[in-house]
Write a protein that binds this DNA or RNA. Structure first.
Lengths: 408, 408
DNA sequence: ATTCTTTTATAATTTTTTTTAAAAGTATTC
DNA sequence: GAATACTTTTAAAAAAAATTATAAAAGAAT
């Protein structure tokens, strides 16, 4: 039994007894990963394996170096327990958060700590071999900079905008030039397992594992930046749909009499409410002489982008707040459709706009009150992410660990 | 180990070994229920238990009378297998399909055969103790008529319109007078386990188990009768949401400039497209002298109801078809929202309107083509149920068996 | 007729659990 | 402030359960 046993699933031609043992190890590692240090007795209760067996499995894992003995813990009325925890340095996970204009890289240890983090700006996403090569380059140089041997990396998790078929490892919207699909392409070059998903869904995984969706079963995560993304946790599981196309919230119909959307349809939610529209409207108003803090940006020759707008809002800029409020009215309308259909217990707002905090939550709440059947909507909590800009990156880690530690 | 072992789950104070044995039995019974007769060798592969153990478990089940030896089957190149199947008369399930104006009752055996079926017309649903008493009465007299001893009944499955919290066994919209919730109330009187769910969700379970959704993982089932119901199978599981309120498809916003809905909101899908609206529009037109086959109904003093309208459509009545087409345009719009959000592989249309077959499918398809992003919608098959009026009743059976045979 | 399959039964072995006991505490009582 | 009773944790032995390996039975294919 080699250290790799964790992600060596669905092995063929391997005895059933070996598979069973792997599953037992995985149950224990899983519990320690998701719940932190635990005693043999606690593990026994959690994984439903007998105490002598758990003890011997833990011994094995210790001898592999995967678990550490944390010494004795607090007694709860009897002999003090011996605590065990994951050796956080046993393996690492690479997180890659691909955005339209920036690239975020991170390396996580098994305690979910980012032992390395890098934000590469002006790294414009384009569908070219060149992009792929320099992406791999960035990752490779991160690896060699850290000096961690390759076999120590459990897997690479990637988050990317657009239509993604996670099951097949395909990115349809971006980087479709990658031969055999993005996941396969990257995996081959890096010599590692690669897991791919859409940014909004990855964020949802991040929220479920590390954010406000912990212990919740039905949660919607909105990624409000320049576009509108949606990741759904339903019945405790990420929902991707048949082809991984689920979550096209930005293109649901809101206003039949509305504007043409770039997708070809009329009155999509994204024609009414998105970071792009918000910025565009504000820029136009500034050009027309609208008094707002953002007018200074223009004077100082700084770019009015979404980050600037949110900053102005947080500084109380009346005009920007007004503009956001208008958008939130539509967003609330759209959310009501989601809530009526899915009856979630929580909606988490993430993305750049989430930085606006109550300035988004309040107007969206008002809109929901107006448009929703209260019996249903009153069961749904609306909050902002507290992972914020980290949620996609944290989500890649969550995605990898979810996949590696999944049972059966 | 008594025959009841099947639904005696989550027993407390019972040794782990007993629970494990129950789980093993359940795996075998489950396989035989969902896949029909099988040999020991087939069961071994399906349930992943060793052959000697499976053989002994099957022996046990035979001795309880739960399984039958079907004799030898066809060889596939060696010794002929001994086939085993569920004893379909070992236990029975009662199905109760509550509608606004009729009540459908059935008794199923373990081969899903309706050994008894009764449609009680003019059994108007009202929120009264009287209704409950006569409902129980109907069930009781069915039981005594059949002469099957009470302990032979595995459970009662109920389908009812409106908001239902299946987990808690509560029906909010109808029959809320039942003490401690409908499921508990009925269970106590009948001395049986009772499982409750909303009609559209029950239909979805029926389609998943017996209809066109077999082997599909992401399927939406529309119940198009007087209202619009939606049952969703997502990731292979029924989605109910936090409180069982999921599926309020009839009350998503379609036309912001539209009519007031009875729910208090404006422009709900149900204000534009529902059996009720269809009938209402046609009645008004007939009153104004519109030429249509349905005008004869009025002359003959027969009621123009949804069944009559569908009949006229099937006879080619131009006006009725036109009216349906109009409705389907809106329905398609609504469906597009669903498809964009959930990326299902199939949408099944059920309910009274499903009898219209291609007369619904075609215009809805056209509307979807118009309003949907084709990359997503082209992955979704749109079909009519072939269970039709039986789907809710079949769904109650599916619901009971799903619950009884669920693993862990 | 012989060889090859598949199925099933039995025996041997391994795995896992249950049982029991020991170790190491806490709480309480005198 | 020890002594005693009660807990919880862990280790070891005994028992049970489940699997693997082996063999036999029954038929198919050549």
């Amino acid at each position: 039994m080699r250290p790799q046993f964790l992600y060596e699933k669905n092995l063929q031609g391997v005895a059933n007894s070996v598979k069973r043992k792997q599953e037992q190890y995985r149950k224990i590692v899983r519990h320690l990963y998701y719940n932190g240090a635990a005693s043999i007795a606690e593990i026994v209760k959690a994984v439903k394996i007998s105490q002598p067996l758990v003890a011997s499995l833990v011994d094995d894992l210790m001898s592999y170096g995967m678990l550490l003995d944390k010494g004795v813990g607090e007694s709860i009325g009897g002999r003090r327990p011996n605590l065990f925890c994951l050796n956080s340095e046993y393996q690492y996970v690479i997180g890659v958060d691909i955005n339209l204009h920036t690239l975020n890289l991170a390396v996580f240890d098994l305690s979910n700590k980012q032992i390395f983090r890098e934000e590469i700006k002006y790294f414009d996403l384009e569908n070219s071999e060149d992009y792929l090569i320099s992406l791999i380059d960035k990752i490779e140089s991160m690896i060699s900079h850290l000096g961690i041997p390759r076999e120590k990396f459990l897997a690479v998790g990637i988050s990317i905008p657009g239509l993604v078929d996670a099951k097949q490892g395909l990115s349809h919207t971006h980087l479709s030039v990658a031969e055999n699909g993005l996941a396969h392409f990257m995996g081959e070059r890096l010599g590692m397992n690669v897991l791919l998903d859409n940014d909004a869904r990855t964020m949802a995984l991040g929220e479920k594992a590390f954010g406000k969706a912990i212990d919740k079963e039905n949660v919607l995560c909105l990624n409000l930046s320049n576009g509108i993304g949606l990741g759904m946790i339903l019945n405790g599981e990420l929902h991707s749909g048949k082809n991984g196309f689920a979550g096209e919230f930005g293109h649901i119909l809101i206003d039949p009499e509305g504007k043409l959307c770039y997708c070809g349809k009329i009155g999509c939610l994204e024609t009414l409410t998105s970071g792009k529209i918000l910025v565009k409207n504000i820029r136009e108003a500034v050009d027309k002489g609208q008094p707002t803090l953002l007018a200074n940006y223009k004077k100082e020759n700084r770019k009015i982008d979404l980050r600037a707008v949110v900053e102005a809002i947080l500084q109380g800029d009346q005009f920007a707040i007004d503009q956001l409020n208008q958008m939130c009215e539509y967003l609330g309308k759209g959310l009501v459709t989601l809530i009526h259909l899915l009856n979630p217990e929580m909606v988490i707002i993430g993305g750049k706009i989430a930085h606006a905090g109550k300035f988004v939550i309040d107007p969206v709440t008002m809109s929901m009150n107006k448009y929703a059947m209260s019996r249903i909507s009153s069961e749904t909590e609306l909050v902002c992410s507290d992972l914020l800009d980290d949620s996609a990156l944290m989500g890649t880690m969550a995605n990898v660990m979810r996949s590696v530690l999944s049972l059966d």
